[in-house]
Structure formats: structure tokens, C-alpha cells
Design a protein around this nucleic acid. Structure first.
Lengths: 249, 249
DNA sequence: CAATCATATTGCGAATGGTACAACGCTATT
DNA sequence: AATAGCGTTGTACCATTCGCAATATGATTG
């Protein structure tokens, strides 16, 4: 771990996570807790590579468009999205709900692709959005290949945020739920993150049995519950077929 | 400019720009020209923040999904109108016609910004106005990333209103026209909405290749047709440059 | 199955490069 | 005009990073 790189990336994350505050040099210095000259040089270096840009009046720093270039490169290099695209389309078409593909990044589920359904009222997630693992269907899928010990290690010392009265906030209960997901081959988020929103997801496993991604849908409680059985079949089949393409048995 | 940050970001750029070669530690070391232990630590730091990830077998490094999170944050922080403003000005100045920026909302193209040219006789659209997709240049641009099936779905059961004898009212013909727009990289509305008014527009694509907006001009038939070739170049270049800022390639 | 090779990872002393401090410049505000 | 608040640049010291070498891991060979 290289300290100055660590600091530079922290600055980047800080800007990304706090769109509300105006990020001038003083504010960034306050955040990092080192001298402003160091912060200035860190930001200059980031700016040189287009990851941040300073307002023309030099007063505030914002995220830079170089990020888009990286995102475009990432998109073209990652193969799982290409593989999954037809499945997403199929799921979205069959369920008439928005379908999405997520991968895990640390303790987050990051959405890497999505397919819109025609419905006007629908859950709206964008590529790049990330959600927590413990309260989402895709999140639970993404850790469903881990054993009890690994789950414990992953969530060790992590506070599971409560979002609704159904959110699982106890690691022990979460581990049990994940075991159930593993056995069933799919996961449900029944208003555990947002009231009136129900999600359904299935894991995508590679040849090693490791969950590489999760494919899921989400929508209003009534629509989802009314056809739950049919939807489970659709989503789980998509996950299984996609897994098969990655060599899973 | 801080050396280690500089090096870390160079590694990131290198991975992004060379999808073909397999980026193992040796290759990255060769590229940077410093000791492999340093490269290892730089990559580890990048990996900790999700900007790169190492293949499960630890052999190769790829771009990480944390990039998507940054891209999502950037997208939510940047308003397209701010970005587009200088381009609108440039286009209006170069063509001496009114320039406007439109985004799609359902089956409408909504004008979100405009730049007036000096001409007294000119098409007059205001911010907030909306026009139909099938009979306007910006409208055709805004759906030019969709494939034939999506076009069909979008206009399914929709009556395409005839405004002039040149208005395209057949979905089949419209789909062909949109395919032509996609290929050409710009769209023309030759009196398809209003007699004697010609419009010209180019799509603005993001890093996903999705058309987020359209930039266009409109004016009286004679002025527009007299300089059509030059105008096409001006508008299309503006669209391409703006797209590049959003990470399109 | 041992041996060898190729690769990634870790420990550690040396010195480079980053940091803090201070000085400077710029703009706005009184 | 003076002051204050910010960003930017110069510099010397010393913490951090670097390169070297040792170790670990895993693949390939005879």
C-alpha cells in the first residue's frame, strides 16, 4: 500500500461520495488531514490524468471526464456483460420488469449492466450504482458461494444498516439467509431495502463454482408477488444458463 | 506532480489502452521501468480502491468495477447542459442559426438548452418545448442507438402524425431512416414537420454508446440547404466532441 | 515425484521523493 | 489601501518509497 496513492484515491472517492459539498482545496485538506501543499499536488496529479478537473476559476474540484474513458475501456474489456446481455433482455421481456446484472466489489454489489422493461413505474438503477450486500437480492446471491466462516470474516466488525423493519441486521441471521439462498439457487429481497420494492435474483457461477455475478429484477411489491413463482423460474433459469456458459455444472 | 500517483495512474491508463495484451506483473513492470515490488504495491493500492482487480488466479490485472462507481457519481454530478453550452455557442456562431440541445422523454424530444444566433428570421424553440421524435432531426438522433426491435417496441401502436407531405408516417420507413442516421452520424429533417423549415442534428453518446442528447440547428430551407455540407460538418463535429467528453469512442 | 523454472509476494536498509513550513501571488472585501 | 482568504511555488528535512534479495507459490519438466 503506497501512502500517496492511497491518499490520492481517497480524495477521488471523497469527491465521488459527497456531491453536495463544494470541494475546494481547504475542504480537501480538512478531509485528508495533511498539509494543503500536498493535497494540491495530489489533486494536480489526478487532474493531469483527467480523473479530477478544477473549475476554471480554480476554486473547486470535481470528478474529471477521464473517468468516462476508463469506464468505456472497462466496458469493452469485460466479457460477462456481453455474455449476459441476451439473458437480461430475455428476463426483462418475460417479466416486464427491469433486469440488471451486478458484480461484487468489496462489500458492495455494483450494477454493471441493465435492461429496461417497458413499464413506466419501475425500480430505476443505473450502471455503476452500488448497493449493500445484506439487504439486496443480488447482494445475497453474490456471496452465496461463501461458507459460514468466510461470511463471518467478510462482515466482521461491519455494522449492517437497517433500512426497513425487514432488513436483516444480524450477521448470524444473514448467514442463515445466505445458506438458504445457496440451497434454493435464488434470492429474494422482500422490502428489506426499500418499502414496497421487491427484488429477485439468481447467482451466475463460473467453472469453479464461484459466483461471478448476479442477475436480477426488481419492481413494485404487488406486481412481483402476484407472479413470484413464474418470475423465480425465469430468473433462476437465466442464471443457470449463464452459469453454464461460464463452465459451471 | 507526485511520482507514485503518476505511476499508479499510468498503470491504470496502460491497462485501459491495451486490452489486447495480458497484464501480468512482469508486463506492467516492463512498461513502468521500475522494480516489480514497486509495481506490485502500486497495483495493490489501486486494487484496494477497486480501480483494478487481479484475476482470481493472480496472474493478470484488469480494470476494476470501482471505475463504474466513479462514472456513476460523475454522471450524477455533471449536468449535460453545462457541458454542452460552449458547443452550442460554437455551433450557433459558426452557422449563424439557432442551436439547441434536446434530450428524450418518452416519445418526445425535449429542448433543455438553446443558443440564439443573430438572424432575425429563425426557427424559434424555447427551453422546455417538446417535439415528436419521428419528424425532427433531434428526435431521430435521440433514438439512433436503438436496434430495429427496440424501435418497433417504442412506436408500437403509436400513430405517427402527418405534418407535411414529407413527414414519415410509416414505422417501417422510420426504422430505415433511423438506421441511416445511425450510419451517417447525423440526421436531417427536410420539411418533415414544418414547411420551409430544415433541421440538422447530431447525437451525443455516452460511454455506453447510448444517445443521451442531441445537438442541432434549424432554419429556413434556403439558408440551410445552401450550406448543408458545411453545416453537417460543424454539427457532427460538435456532437462527436461532446460525446468524447462523455467517454464515447 | 523431485527438481526446476517462472511468477508473485514480503522484509529491510538506503536514499529518493514527499511532506510541512513558509513565502508569494492573486482576488475579493472592508 | 489594507486586510484577509484562498491557491500556488520554493526548499530542507526525514518519512516513505524504492530496489535488492529472500521467500512463497504454483506450473512444468524429466
Amino acid at each position: 500500500m503506497i501512502q500517496s496513492v492511497e491518499r490520492a484515491l481517497s480524495l477521488l472517492d471523497h469527491i465521488a461520495e459527497h456531491p453536495e459539498s463544494s470541494h475546494n482545496l481547504a475542504e480537501m485538506t480538512e478531509f485528508l488531514g495533511v498539509d494543503k501543499s500536498s493535497v494540491f499536488r495530489l489533486l494536480s496529479t489526478l487532474a493531469k490524468h483527467g480523473l479530477v478537473r478544477q473549475d476554471e476559476s480554480r476554486k473547486t474540484y470535481q470528478l474529471g471526464f477521464g473517468i468516462y474513458s476508463l469506464a468505456a475501456a472497462l466496458r469493452s474489456q469485460v466479457k460477462i456483460t456481453e455474455l449476459a446481455a441476451p439473458f437480461l433482455k430475455r428476463v426483462a421481456l418475460a417479466t416486464k420488469e427491469n433486469a440488471h446484472l451486478a458484480v461484487r466489489s468489496g462489500l458492495s454489489a455494483v450494477f454493471v449492466d441493465r435492461e429496461r422493461a417497458s413499464k413506466t413505474i419501475a425500480a430505476n438503477t443505473s450502471i455503476g450504482d452500488s448497493e449493500e450486500l445484506h439487504c439486496t437480492a443480488v447482494g445475497k446471491c453474490l456471496v452465496s458461494h461463501l461458507d459460514r466462516a468466510a461470511i463471518g470474516l467478510l462482515f466482521e466488525g461491519v455494522e449492517l444498516t437497517r433500512y426497513t423493519d425487514r432488513t436483516i441486521v444480524d450477521v448470524e441471521a444473514l448467514a442463515a439467509e445466505i445458506a438458504a439462498v445457496k440451497a434454493a439457487g435464488y434470492a429474494v429481497d422482500a422490502e428489506e431495502y426499500e418499502k414496497n420494492v421487491v427484488c429477485l435474483a439468481a447467482p451466475v457461477r463460473n467453472f469453479e463454482g464461484v459466483v461471478e455475478a448476479a442477475i436480477g429484477i426488481s419492481g413494485p411489491k404487488e406486481r412481483m408477488e402476484a407472479q413470484m413463482d413464474a418470475f423465480v423460474a425465469i430468473v433462476r433459469d437465466a442464471g443457470l444458463e449463464l452459469s453454464a456458459m461460464l463452465g459451471a455444472r
